[in-house]
Structures are given as structure tokens and as C-alpha cells.
């Protein structure tokens, strides 16, 4: 279980980044600092065994939260508990309870072969040999680690290294898994493999998963719940299927038979459905109707065209997670101070 309560974090940075040579010289004599409020009272809970996506645009505060939960950053105020433990209270016990992937950093030993890193991790975590062997077989089956096992980590491609990183995070069978952009650099097949591995581990071992990713496929494939953060504040919490229902627009595509003037036909539909619905002729005898979900339903569109044309096809695709998130990210949030 993960609990975050009113977490804040403010970073102070030197404001010596003026451009040009003169700016650099002035920076030598300036002690001016600026504050960046990365977290502004973040609260959320991830129940034990649940897989939750922690989403937001770049700079929203996702990675800062993950680092606080991992125990590598101290919050300015607020507190959190991961697997029933304050991350900083007993760092070694916390490290044994969690597995973390930071997509652009390595926790493997740069100059040593991958197998050697796993051998060291097994000893650091005091892993029973049977569990270490079972994990090795599982990772080899799903992530195909065998082909890179004897190569020093520094010689691996990004994709190969990420496979090893994910396996390293799961190797000691952690009860909580924190994944920060875990599929960076992976191709589609390997992404699928990672999704399968995380889901299998979560299902079989009851692992709690918190995932940050900009890849909609990761979120859809792994998570059942979402927490959306923007400008350091949680702006949405709920199940993924509920979030999909929050789509701000709905689309209905209509194909018809009959000779009507496309522009007049579109105008007619728009008048019937009302503002702010848009109707766009899309090729021969086809229109796309877009607007708020309460105005644009298949039934209303059908009713609007009945008597004018014979409808030959009507499609109302479900909104994608990408569309919903895009709308959520650009929606204005309540004003707050200081960022």
C-alpha cells in the first residue's frame, strides 16, 4: 500500500543562467535564487496489490513524488508511507520492500556483466537461492535476458539495458514497485513483454504498482486506476474506465446514401444538435460529427438525419485514453501560488 499525504517539495535554484558571456560573468557575482514548487500538497492512496498510473505532463511533479516514495528525496512537508513504512525511517528495510525503475538511470554495475549485477543484488537482498533462480528463469523467459547475460552493462543498447533494469527492480520480489518511465527505448514487442511481466508479478505476488509513463500503451496494459497530477497537485483520481467517460468530446461518423448537398446536410445536422457541435463532410457521402458527449450520441445523430438520407453506416468510437489525458492536461486548474 502507498499513502501520500499533503506532500510538498520546493527546489531552490541559482538564477545564474543569463545568456551570453556577460550573463556568465554577472552570474559569478549573483546569489539570486528562484523557487520551483514541484509538489504543492499531493495526496493519494494506492491500495495494496493495485496497479495505478501516476500521470501528468512533463514537470507536473511525477518523478519528484516517486523519488520521495522511494526514500531518495525528503519532502518539504507532508508525509508518506510505503508498505506501512516511512521511507526514511529505516532505509535498508524500505529498500528491501520496494523495487524502482528510473527509466534514464542505471542501478546495475556499469563495468560488470549483467549476471554479476544480479548475483550482487541477490546477496545485498539476502535472496534465497531458489527464489533467485526462479526469478532468473522468469525474466529470461519474458525478457530474453540470456543473450545479454554475460555482457558488461556499459556495452548494452538502451533497450537491452532497460530489460536488465526492469528485471533488477523485480529481482528481490519487492512488495511495492515504483516505475518511472520503465519502457523508454523499448520496441513494441519488448513493451508487451514488460507489460506481461509486471502484470504477472503483480497478479501472482500481489505487488502494488505505481507507474509513471507518457506511453498510453503502458497505462492501458498495466493499470486499473489513475492519479493525474498537474503543477504539483492531484487533479483527478479514479478508475481508468471512469476516466475514459470524462472525455470532453464525442465523435460519431456517418455514411449515407442519397443525393444531398454535403454543406447543406452538415449545416442541417449542426442546427439540429446545437452549438458547439461541429459537423465536417469527410469524403463522398460521409460526415464526422464532434461535440460534447451529451449532445453527440448515435441516437441524436440518427434522429437528426432521419428523413433526409438513408444511413448506411454509423460508428461511434470510444474515446482513447490519449484524447482524455490531452483534454485533462490542457484544462485550466484552480489558481495557486508560487510556481
Amino acid at each position: 500500500m502507498i499513502e501520500a499525504h499533503e506532500l510538498t517539495k520546493v527546489f531552490r535554484m541559482r538564477a545564474d543562467t543569463r545568456p551570453g558571456l556577460w550573463g556568465a560573468v554577472r552570474g559569478l557575482f549573483s546569489a539570486e535564487t528562484t523557487e520551483v514548487r514541484a509538489l504543492d500538497g499531493v495526496s493519494f492512496t494506492v491500495p495494496a496489490g493495485e496497479r495505478t498510473a501516476y500521470l501528468g505532463v512533463n514537470g507536473a511533479g511525477k518523478s519528484t513524488t516517486i523519488k520521495i516514495l522511494a526514500g531518495v528525496l525528503t519532502p518539504g512537508s507532508g508525509h508518506c508511507r510505503v508498505d506501512g513504512r516511512e521511507p526514511r525511517a529505516d532505509r535498508n528495510a524500505h529498500a528491501r520492500a520496494i523495487g524502482v525503475v528510473f527509466g534514464h538511470r542505471t542501478q546495475l554495475w556499469w563495468d560488470l556483466p549483467v549476471t554479476e549485477s544480479f548475483r550482487i543484488l541477490a546477496r545485498l537482498h539476502d535472496l534465497p537461492p531458489a527464489l533467485a533462480e526462479a526469478n532468473r528463469l522468469l525474466f529470461d523467459e519474458l525478457l530474453d535476458l540470456g543473450e545479454i547475460a554475460d555482457r558488461p552493462v556499459r556495452t548494452l543498447s538502451l533497450g537491452q539495458r532497460m530489460r536488465a533494469e526492469i528485471a533488477a527492480a523485480l529481482f528481490h520480489a519487492p512488495r511495492v514497485l515504483l516505475l518511472d518511465e520503465p519502457t523508454i527505448g523499448l520496441d513494441l514487442l519488448l513493451k508487451d513483454a514488460v507489460h506481461e511481466l509486471v502484470n504477472r508479478v503483480a497478479r501472482e505476488r500481489g505487488t502494488t504498482v505505481l507507474l509513471t509513463s507518457h506511453d498510453v500503451a503502458d497505462i492501458s496494459a498495466i493499470c486499473e486506476r489513475v492519479v493525474v497530477v498537474d503543477a504539483g497537485r492531484v487533479v483527478h483520481t479514479g478508475y481508468l474506465h471512469e476516466l475514459l467517460r470524462r472525455a470532453p468530446t464525442r465523435t460519431v461518423r456517418l455514411e449515407y446514401a442519397g443525393d444531398v448537398d454535403p454543406a447543406a446536410f452538415a449545416h442541417h445536422i449542426r442546427l439540429e444538435l446545437g452549438d458547439p457541435v461541429t459537423v465536417t463532410p469527410a469524403g463522398r457521402r460521409r460526415v464526422t460529427v464532434q461535440g460534447p458527449p451529451e449532445l453527440v450520441t448515435p441516437q441524436r445523430v440518427l434522429a437528426a438525419v432521419t428523413g433526409l438520407v438513408a444511413v448506411t453506416d454509423l460508428v461511434a468510437p470510444e474515446p482513447t485514453l490519449g484524447e482524455v489525458l490531452r483534454a485533462l492536461y490542457v484544462a485550466p486548474q484552480p489558481a495557486r501560488g508560487g510556481r
Binding site: G71, R91, A95, V100
Partner: peptide, 12 residues
Amino acid sequence: RGDHITGMLRPI
């Protein structure tokens, strides 16, 4: 580089 955080994730 900020890579010290991976060292902090080890139980030692």
C-alpha cells in the same frame, strides 16, 4: 549526474 539515487535504493 543525479545517479547517486540508485545507490540509495540498495539495502546497504
